[in-house]
């Protein structure tokens, strides 16, 4: 195994990780601030991808498509918060899970009704297509490099927003003590709608960015949602920093596990069996990682609440 391959896989792991971060950030914010488990987060990812595909198809512009994805997902998020989620804050988690699961079904069938059952076309823009040559002779797709850049930029932006702005102070205060901040005269319901729409917009952005290299189809959000939950459990629920570290950890573990485990088993088994056993175990690796982290730190790496 060459170093170039290993380096390329680390980049792949990073890219996978930052996209997971975009999903996990919204999920963990919503849980941290409002105490709400939102299973429909994956649907907002799908909304972003479909909005991007529709706008890219109509205008041919990828940047416009990204703007549309952000706007559509944020609007869908705000609408859902006002119409449905708002009634769930006082309820227990089981009610929230049931209601947001219903939202998944409504979003999926609604999207099918609007766009049909066949996957849509969304491709990366010409100015980002093809590989670039990195130092050390690594050939790496320009688009995936751009994804890493966008993900890290969003992480920095969120860090500044939460840590250094008035809205950020309110969000942190809402996390710490909801009644007190309401008593101090902050319009808590408007803050909640804002946080929910922000999380939705990040999910929509991830959907559009990833949709361009994967397939834009109904149900595309659910597999990512499961991974995003793993990420926030590892990182500690409610922590943006935890979401970033957790996402990168999951991304790199998953990618390198898929590369190294079959080779490891190849030392003792024949190639066909090693490929089969190695891939099966690699698929479990992130869950093993989650279990190990929870044994070590039961509230996650940066957990603020148990």
């Amino acid at each position: 195994m060459s170093l170039i391959l290993l380096a390329e896989q680390v980049l792949n792991g990073l890219q996978f990780g930052v996209m997971l971060f975009l999903m996990a950030a919204g999920l963990t914010l919503v849980f941290g601030v409002m105490g709400l488990i939102n299973l429909a987060h994956g649907s907002l990812y799908m909304v972003g991808a479909f909005a991007a595909a529709a706008v890219a198809g109509a205008t041919g512009s990828f940047l416009l498509a990204l703007v549309a994805a952000l706007a559509a997902a944020a609007a869908a998020g705000a609408l859902v918060e006002v119409l449905v989620i708002r009634r769930l804050y006082g309820r227990d988690h089981l009610d929230q899970v049931l209601a947001t699961f219903a939202l998944i079904l409504i979003f999926s069938e609604g999207t099918r009704w609007l766009f049909g059952s066949f996957p849509l076309y969304l491709n990366i823009p010409a100015w980002l297509s093809g590989p670039v040559l990195l130092p050390g002779g690594i050939q790496y797709p320009a688009y995936r490099l751009a994804l890493i850049g966008v993900g890290l930029a969003v992480a920095l932006g969120l860090h500044l927003l939460i840590g250094h702005t008035r809205v950020g102070i309110r969000i942190r205060a809402g996390e710490a003590d909801r009644e007190m901040i309401a008593a101090l005269g902050v319009d808590i319901s408007r803050l909640y709608t804002f946080v929910f729409a922000l999380g939705a917009a990040l999910a929509g952005l991830a959907g559009a960015l990833v949709g361009a290299i994967q397939s834009v189809q109904v149900g595309m959000g659910e597999p990512v949602l499961i991974l995003a939950f793993v990420v926030i459990v590892i990182g500690g629920i409610g922590s943006i920093k935890g979401a970033l570290i957790g996402a990168l950890l999951v991304g790199v573990t998953d990618t390198l596990g898929g590369l190294l485990l079959p080779r490891l088993f190849g030392l003792v088994l024949d190639p066909s069996a090693a490929a089969s056993v190695g891939s099966a175990l690699a698929a479990m690796l992130i869950y093993l990682l989650m279990a190990a982290v929870l044994v070590w730190r039961p509230s996650g790496l940066f957990g603020v609440r148990a």
């Binding site: 391959l5 996978f16 994967q214 595309m220 597999p223």
Partner: peptide, 8 residues
């Protein structure tokens, strides 16, 4: 849905 690792 992501095949970057396999393609590498």
């Amino acid at each position: 849905t992501d095949y970057a690792a396999e393609i590498a």
